[in-house]
Each structure stands twice: as structure tokens, then as C-alpha cells.
Design a protein around this nucleic acid. Structure first.
Length: 767
DNA sequence: TGTTGCTCCCTTTTT
DNA sequence: GGGAGCAACA
């Protein structure tokens, strides 16, 4: 028997051992939410509840497995049989068994984001929308708007009104397009992510027999991350818990409104606030003590919420003493940020295991520079978020074979395969599809006559369909058939891709049904198992939800990146970014490092562009974090607190302003180390000789081995200038236009024109 | 008419 | 690493 009272605090104990009826657990970050759910499962099992009647809806399958695993260890009962996973995956499983009527006997497949884009594009072209109109929204933008309208359950016009005012003139066309896309999915037997949820709701509402069966089966429903459910998800939970109008059964919802970060896809914080209304008689239990993070980390997190527009009246507290300070690091550029992060990770690896370290960022592509640096340094990592395995082109090709096998009407799969063959473009692919879908063999024969290779592929698929076998074997056969196409399309790196494809076989090994495997691949990309322990983690913050690490490094904390520039227009979007930052900080147990590079490489500007710190960093008082600046030599030096923080100066400006302090003047100016530099007047605009116009210059030219010299900083007042240079003071902010190896940059100062200056002379601090 | 190759652009977050 | 738009070719 487990001593629940001893293992849990009072609130946790109340939640884990509460009796029947609906319960809302409001659980602050790091307050032992997972622990509570784990003990809840064990407690239920101890009470004689059979695992099959427990349903654990979480944000990822991984989270569900983790909780089941831990609960299994606790109670010694194998909790095998507990259903767990995302709403979408759960919905798919149910819909496989209780199929919607409109499908009749046809098979159905789940679309991934690329399929959705392709389908919407197809519909757009079919309707002749936006032809020659450059202002017409791009397909991907349309996909986002359509999905948002469905998720928020609002008319498209209203979404446009709120979020894309400039597209209002297209409201009718886009609404029409939405209807066409709805019809398209039914015609071709596919469902998108939103369909899974709405079809499940429809089933629970309209199929009394199925609803009864499901309610009888799932007597205890636990929903994690409830703040990130949308309206239809909340209704699904409600319907599973019992018919509307009757007292709801056993539902435990766990969430934290301060961690709501999915409003963009229709998640509704109101679900938490409305829980007692939707589930009459609900009890509310609050978990407020933080067990995860040290005080300095909590201070930063609490500070974020204090500045929130809508106060959450939430302050995390901990009884833990001490803890090393949060560090705020200012690298000179995003490139040197990557280098500094690698160095820092090396340092952390001396005291932490790789899997206890994570680097978090706002968007998938923000980690590209870091990924390269880690590869060079030989540090293994795994990345979550951004482009996923199943979205790689070669994986999608192979999956298209399998999908066509299951569903001959799957148009995006068909057209994808067709277009792999030479001489088949979008138009021909479409004609071939129509011929194939018509079922008219004579028409097909004619259409395929000139495309023998593609025809062979189709016949191959038919032969596979004729003799069903284990998914892994089917995929192995497809891989073989696909091999020539792979080599044709990726001559430069097909071996790498081939290897990645072989992983697909490993993943499929445990499955007995091909459609289930494909759905899982689209809905929650399966983990590759091995090697997880000796890799550090790179993750988008969204994908880091619910996880924690000893040391967390957050990079690219600069304006336009974090908060995302898309979030600046509307206050509620900005607030979501703030909660995102809150989530990121509260992932850390012992060490939190914040990185805010002073410049970013920008292709549009053809060089390094100066950027301001993220407002989330600026609003932090200097006492909350130790400040570290990258010097010219690449090392870090400490900025004493009390010194003007970037918040006070409004960010780092380029040269201008008064001469600097003696302390700054003692900074490590090292321009003279590199020998004589040609005389250069900075008073006039410089005409660049043609051979110097190689923009953008690689940072790591032999003469400038350190990436930190991209844009180095030097105090304007102190050090002696190299011979031949004269000082020229320019007020205001400049933009680095291009680098001129080895040590100069071209800077555009509004009102002063282009200047070529020594890279070291970009003033970063004390402006 | 349709395919292919080129350039410019941009690149949020997820199921 | 694409998507979209444009121009050249079959």
C-alpha cells in the first residue's frame, strides 16, 4: 500500500484521492502536477478501478506514457490498458471503429499539414480564386485562417475582421473556398486534424449506441493541460462524461491558465474558467507550491507574470533556499551566440548529464546556427518542433505509396507520386487522377500510355494491396520500389535520406495495422528510441510544454523573434508570448540562462542587423539576473549590476553619444593585434572596390577566425585608434549592411549614409 | 499547353 | 528549404 498522505502535500493528496464527480485541478508550473496524476492513477487502480476504464488525455503520447510508467512503478499493477494520448489520436482510434456515415465503406486517411496545403491549393485553383491577384492570400495563410475559424467556431469573416482586416474584401471568396475544401475531403475520403475532433463530437451526439458504449467503457477521464483545449475538445470531454443535462461522471481536468500557449489554434482559456459551469458540482483544487525551480528562477518567472496585462494573481513560491543566479548573456551576434551556447553546454556537461540540458527557442528555424555549431563540436542533440521527421520530402514520398495503397482516392498522395516521374507536372497528374478515380479502365489505359514508369508504380501498389502483410514488410517493399526515384531526385544526399527511411521500418515494427501506423505518424510522430539519454535537447517552447530540465538555455531573446513579430499587432497575442516565456523559464530546475544577441544575420539587409533585446528581458530588473557581455576576443565578462541596463538605454545603439566610461574603456580592444590596417577615412562615404563587394561575407574567413568579429564592439572613448583611423562621432542607430573581410563592416546610418568602419568600432554598450 | 528551371522571398507556434 | 511567380523550352 502506498502512503499517499506522506508522499503528497495536502492539495496533491486531495486531488489524488478524491472520490467521484468532476474535479478541476489548477496546478501552477512545477507544482507536482504529473506526480499528482501519477498517484491518482495508482490510487484509482488500488480502489479496484480497472485500467481499461481510465482514459488519460494529454498533450503528447510521451506525456501519457511517462505518467503511466510512473504510476505503474508505484502501484505494482501493470496499468496496461489505460488509453492515453492526444485528443486527435484518441479520436482517430474511435473513428476507426465507429465510422462516420458519409464514409460509407470507403477507407479514410488522415491528412498532415502538407496534404492540407495541397488540398486547399487544389480547391483554390479549381475555383479560379486569386489568379493574377498578388494581394490574394497565400495558400498557407488561407489554411491557417480556415482552421482558425473552425477551431474558434466563428465565421471566417469574423476571423478576418479580428486578425486580417486587409483580407476582408476576400471574405466571400475565402468562405466559398472553405466550403469547397470541406466537400473535397468528403469526396476523397480524407480527414484533417479538425475533422477528427468534430466527427468524434458528432458521433457522441448522434450515435446513441456508440456514445453509451464509450461512456460505459471510460469511467474515469483525466485531461492534462486543460488550458490548451479548445471548445470542441471541452465538449468531447463533457459528452464522454455523460449525456448533456445529466450529472457528469468522473472527470479530472488539470491545467494552469498562466501556461495557456495555444490560443492561436483555438485553445480557449475560458474552458478552465467555465469548467464549473460545464461540469456542475465540480470541485476545485489548487496546487501552488513549486517543487521544481530554485528561487532565482522563480523570481524571473514571477516577474513575467507581474508585468502581464491581465494579472493572474499567481505567485509561485518554493521552500527551497539558494540556487545559482539566472544569467543574462549578450553575445555579439547570433553566430557567436551559437558558439557561446556550445561552450556553455560543454561547461554544464561537466556537472549534468546530456538529457538534463535543454536549449529552447521560439521558432524551429532559430536553432539552425546552433545545430551546425553543435554538429561541429560533436555534441549530440535531439530536436523537437519545427520540421518533423514525417514532413521530410522523402518520408512523405514513401508514405504516399502507403496511403494510396489504403485509399486509392487519396488525391494528394496520388499527385505526389505522379509528379515524381519525369514529364508529369501538376496538370498531367490531375488528369491521371481523374482517369484513375473514374474507374474507367479504357480511359485509364489511354491516360497512362505515355507514363509507363508511373503506371508500374501503380501496379506495384495494387499488387501490395492484393496481399496484405505486416506494415513493416509493406514499407520495406515500398522502399525498394522507391529507391530509383530517391536517387533520381536527391542525387547529392540520397544515402542520408535512405538511412532516414530505414528508420521508418524500425518505427513500423511494432504495428499490425498500416493505417494505424500512418495515422500515428501524422498525429504524434513516434519517438526514435535509442540514444535518448546521451543527447541534449533542442526544442521549440511549444514542444517543451510539460517537460523540465536541470539547465535550460533560452536563445534569441530579441525583438521580432521572441516575441514573434507576428504577435505585436494585437495585445492578446503579445500576452500569449509572455505566457510562452513564462512556460520556457519554468522548465528549468537549477540553472536558467537567457541569451539576447546584439545583432542578427539578416538576408534582407545583407549583413548583420542590430536588434533590441526582447521586452521580456528588458523589463527584468538588473537584480534578477547576472549580466554577461561578450567581449571582442570572444570571452564573456561580467557587467556589474547597477550599471545602466539595456532597459534603461533602450537597447544597444550603434556609435553615437558621449564618450564612454573608463571601465568600458578598459575593455579588450584588440584591433591592433591584427597588424596594419589601411588608412580609411570614416568621414566620407566609401566607394567599395568591386572585389570587396562580396556580400554577405562569411564570418569565418582565415583572417577573422572568431565569429565574434562579425560585429565586434569597442568603447568609443577609450582605446587608441590604430594608425590611420580618425574618430568620427555619429549619433543615432546604424544598420550593418555588409561585412568586409577581414575586419571592416559597412554601416548605414540614416542621415549619414554608408560608412565603412572597423568592425570593432560598433559600439555595443554605453551608447 | 504544360514542364522545367530560375529567382526572390519568407520562415511562428501544433494536431 | 520550399512556395510562388516568371521565362524559356518541348
Amino acid at each position: 500500500m502506498i502512503d499517499y498522505a506522506k508522499a503528497l502535500n495536502e492539495a496533491q493528496y486531495a486531488a489524488a484521492t478524491c472520490g467521484d464527480g468532476p474535479v478541476l485541478v489548477v496546478a501552477g508550473a512545477g507544482s507536482g502536477k504529473t506526480r499528482t496524476i501519477t498517484y491518482r492513477l495508482a490510487w484509482l487502480a488500488e480502489q479496484g478501478v480497472s485500467p481499461e476504464s481510465m482514459l488519460l488525455l494529454t498533450f503528447t503520447r510521451k506525456a501519457a506514457q511517462e505518467m503511466l510508467h510512473r504510476a505503474g512503478l508505484l502501484c505494482d499493477h501493470a496499468l496496461a490498458g489505460v488509453q492515453g494520448g492526444t485528443f486527435h489520436a484518441f479520436a482517430y482510434g474511435i473513428l476507426r471503429r465507429f465510422r462516420p456515415e458519409w464514409l460509407a465503406d470507403r477507407p479514410f486517411t488522415v491528412m498532415d499539414s502538407a496534404d492540407i496545403t495541397a488540398a486547399v491549393k487544389h480547391c483554390k485553383e479549381a475555383l479560379g480564386l486569386g489568379k493574377g491577384d498578388r494581394a490574394f492570400p497565400k495558400t498557407q495563410a488561407i489554411v491557417g485562417l480556415l482552421s482558425k475559424a473552425r477551431n474558434k467556431e466563428l465565421p471566417l469573416a469574423e476571423i478576418l475582421q479580428r486578425e486580417a482586416f486587409h483580407l476582408l474584401p476576400y471574405a466571400d471568396g475565402l468562405t466559398e473556398l472553405g466550403r469547397r475544401y470541406d466537400a473535397f475531403r468528403r469526396e476523397t475520403g480524407v480527414m484533417d486534424y479538425d475533422d477528427l475532433l468534430f466527427e468524434l463530437e458528432a458521433l457522441l451526439r448522434h450515435d446513441a449506441r456508440a456514445a453509451e458504449l464509450l461512456r460505459a467503457r471510460y469511467r474515469h477521464i483525466l485531461v492534462d493541460e486543460y488550458q490548451d483545449t479548445n471548445l470542441v475538445q471541452a465538449r468531447i470531454v463533457r459528452l464522454l462524461a455523460g449525456p448533456e443535462g445529466e450529472a457528469p461522471g468522473n472527470v479530472m481536468a488539470v491545467g494552469d491558465e498562466a501556461q495557456s500557449i495555444y490560443a492561436f489554434r483555438g485553445a480557449n482559456v475560458r474552458n478552465i474558467l467555465d469548467f464549473p459551469r460545464l461540469f456542475p458540482g465540480a470541485r476545485i483544487i489548487r496546487l501552488e507550491e513549486n517543487y521544481r525551480s530554485t528561487r532565482p528562477i522563480l523570481a524571473v518567472a514571477n516577474n513575467l507574470l507581474e508585468h502581464a496585462a491581465e494579472s493572474f494573481r499567481k505567485t509561485l513560491f518554493t521552500r527551497r533556499e539558494g540556487g545559482s543566479p539566472v544569467r543574462l548573456v549578450t553575445p555579439l551576434s547570433d553566430k557567436s551566440q551559437a558558439r557561446l551556447v556550445v561552450e556553455r553546454i560543454r561547461e554544464l556537461l561537466r556537472t549534468h548529464l546530456p538529457h538534463e540540458i535543454a536549449v529552447l527557442f521560439r521558432a524551429g528555424f532559430h536553432s539552425f546556427a546552433l545545430e551546425m555549431a553543435l554538429n561541429q563540436a560533436g555534441i549530440a542533440f535531439r530536436k523537437y518542433g519545427g520540421l518533423r521527421y514525417a514532413e521530410a520530402a522523402h518520408v512523405k514520398d514513401v508514405v504516399a505509396f502507403a496511403r494510396l495503397l489504403l485509399n486509392p482516392l487519396d488525391m494528394s498522395a496520388f499527385e505526389r507520386l505522379a509528379a515524381l516521374h519525369e514529364g508529369i507536372g501538376p496538370k498531367t497528374a490531375q488528369k491521371l487522377y481523374e482517369a484513375a478515380a473514374s474507374g474507367d479502365t479504357a480511359r485509364m489505359g489511354k491516360a497512362f500510355a505515355r507514363h509507363a514508369a508511373f503506371r508500374a508504380d501503380m501496379e506495384f501498389i495494387e499488387s501490395l494491396r492484393a496481399r496484405p502483410q505486416a506494415p513493416a514488410l509493406t514499407l520495406a517493399a515500398i522502399l525498394e520500389q522507391y529507391r530509383p526515384l530517391l536517387e533520381l531526385h536527391y542525387p547529392e544526399d540520397w544515402p542520408r535520406r535512405q538511412q532516414a527511411l530505414e528508420e521508418l521500418l524500425q518505427m513500423a515494427a511494432g504495428y499490425t495495422e498500416l493505417d494505424l501506423f500512418l495515422a500515428d505518424l501524422a498525429l504524434e510522430s513516434p519517438e526514435e528510441e535509442e540514444g535518448g539519454e546521451d543527447r541534449i535537447t533542442l526544442s521549440t517552447i511549444h514542444s517543451a510544454k510539460g517537460l523540465e530540465w536541470n539547465a535550460v538555455l533560452i536563445i534569441d531573446l530579441v525583438e521580432d523573434r521572441f516575441p514573434s513579430r507576428h504577435a505585436l499587432a494585437r495585445p492578446e497575442d503579445f500576452e500569449e508570448e509572455r505566457r510562452l516565456m513564462y512556460v520556457a523559464c519554468t522548465r528549468a530546475r537549477q540553472q536558467l540562462d537567457l541569451y539576447a544577441p546584439a545583432t542578427l544575420y539578416s538576408r534582407a539587409e545583407q549583413g548583420m542587423t542590430h536588434v533590441n533585446q526582447s521586452p521580456f528581458v528588458r523589463e527584468m530588473g538588473p537584480q534578477l539576473a547576472e549580466q554577461w557581455l561578450e567581449g571582442f576576443g570572444g570571452g564573456l565578462r561580467r557587467r556589474e549590476s547597477g550599471f545602466g541596463t539595456p532597459a534603461a538605454t533602450g537597447g544597444h545603439d550603434l556609435p553615437g553619444g558621449p564618450a564612454t566610461s573608463p571601465r568600458a574603456a578598459a575593455g579588450s580592444f584588440r584591433g591592433k593585434e591584427r597588424g596594419a590596417t589601411p588608412a580609411l577615412s570614416d568621414a566620407e562615404d566609401c566607394q567599395l572596390p568591386p572585389e570587396e563587394r562580396l556580400s554577405p561575407a562569411p564570418a569565418a574567413s582565415p583572417a577573422a577566425p572568431s565569429a565574434t568579429r562579425d560585429v565586434a564592439a569597442a568603447p568609443a572613448g577609450g582605446p587608441r585608434l590604430p594608425q590611420g583611423y580618425c574618430r568620427h562621432r555619429i549619433f543615432g542607430r546604424g544598420k550593418v549592411v555588409r561585412q568586409l573581410p577581414p575586419d571592416k563592416v559597412q554601416v548605414n546610418f540614416p542621415g549619414f549614409g554608408l560608412k565603412v568602419i572597423l568592425a570593432e568600432y560598433l559600439l555595443m554598450e554605453d551608447a
